[in-house]
Design a protein around this nucleic acid. Structure first.
Lengths: 230, 230
DNA sequence: CCAAAAGTGTTTTAGCTACACCCATGA
DNA sequence: TCATGGGTGTAGCTAAAACACTTTTGG
């Protein structure tokens, strides 16, 4: 955490999406003894690529490599930064903070969103925080600074990209039912979709591989299992 | 240009699109005595919003306020920066540059694209450059650092946004013919479009206002003039 | 046999393409 | 009256939506 190891004035924040219980959820950190909630973020080392810094942070918080990751906006308003907030966090962790500490400066933040398989993640807090947990999008705690805005822009970008990119492959396990895939789309779009239309559209896109049926033990026809081709 | 006025390690670059002679063109600067070509860019003042810094730079280079502006990516690789290039530029302008000059450090660059009305612009070079001129996209000079990549990503983003955003309104004068609008779309997409299909699609989108015909003096039916509604 | 969910066949609708035709204009 | 480019009508095709129907499963 000492000065000169990281680029000053530059940070990143990540909106990490997972899917569980038919809901879209994101990872939120809680800082020690402050009641402050924040997106997982971090800094860029002097000799480190920006994208590599974000992947390093994701690895630390989720334990996962090779995450689907997309940069979507850089937040650079002066007003987004209040130096008092960071001072509170550092002092609550027992650091004595000089007035000119580099972490109290103004920061620009490059924001990314990530899509991961919920079941494979072990959320891990960092040194400054006492928890790192999943929160459903409609039950987020109040977030510090402009992090709420960052989440909303991430979700908007994800919606805009939904038709162009293969989103499901990153949020679902290797085998899944058509109904589960539909629930992912509904959670992202925030609206119900027609079952039959959805099924035909997905099949027509020709990226699904059909496998044996799954017998759920329920009193109805067993659904096929699917995986993503290639 | 002195230290402490600008945020270190942070720059922006802008891809400024204009439309003329049925071609898409962008503004390129040439640095004094170096043969180096670059995108118009700049730095962010300590107490200035990032977006405001970019608008300030655009105003200086084009004379225009209220430009259509969109941030599309932040370039943060270590390899994008070679300190020798900036040193060459500064020395060619008569500055004696100490080894630890802030402009020789590694920079992250936030990239924007702008859409402007070609006819309203007076391209203006800055203190370090001896020209600021329009270049057609297929006749760009070799650009320094990763600026070529930035241009290509800007064009790709513009294409992706073409269906979702009102692009023509920023590139054309207030009154224009359907044929001129089609030429804009063709220049952006890099392909020919069908005349009749294009006309009907644009009219069906319901954002065009039809005005009196324009008598061109040519030996054929005079086309209607259009403007964008609202 | 029934209820519930899955899968598919059929009809309807909407949008796009291709082609044709007519119109207006100045030489 | 001719060539040229502009505007629109129409038939045909394709993809999506809407609806209905059948199938499979466990109680």
């Amino acid at each position: 955490m000492e000065e000169k190891r990281y680029l000053p004035h530059i940070a990143y924040d990540s909106v990490i999406f997972g899917f569980s219980g038919n809901q879209l959820k994101i990872l939120i950190m809680k800082y020690h003894n402050t009641g402050l909630f924040a997106l997982p973020g971090g800094f860029v080392k002097m000799d480190e690529d920006l994208n590599a810094a974000v992947r390093r942070g994701l690895k630390e918080r989720t334990g996962l490599d090779n995450i689907y990751l997309e940069q979507f906006y850089t937040f650079g308003d002066v007003a987004r930064y209040q130096s008092g907030v960071m001072k509170t966090i550092l002092e609550a962790n027992g650091y004595s903070v000089p007035e000119n500490h580099w972490m109290l400066d103004r920061f620009i933040s490059i924001a990314y969103y990530a899509l991961i398989n919920y079941d494979k993640v072990v959320p891990t807090p960092d040194a400054l925080s006492d928890s790192c947990d999943w929160y459903a999008l409609d039950k987020l705690p109040p977030l510090m600074q402009d992090h709420r805005l960052i989440v909303e822009k991430a979700l908007q970008t994800l919606r805009d990209n939904l038709e162009r990119k293969l989103v499901g492959v990153n949020l679902l396990p290797p085998l899944f039912t058509m109904n589960e895939l539909q629930k992912v789309y509904e959670a992202i779009l925030g609206e119900k979709l027609r079952r039959t239309t959805f099924q035909r559209k997905m099949l027509s896109l020709n990226f699904l591989q059909r496998h044996d049926k799954q017998y759920s033990g329920k009193a109805h026809k067993a659904p096929y299992l699917y995986s993503f081709k290639q």
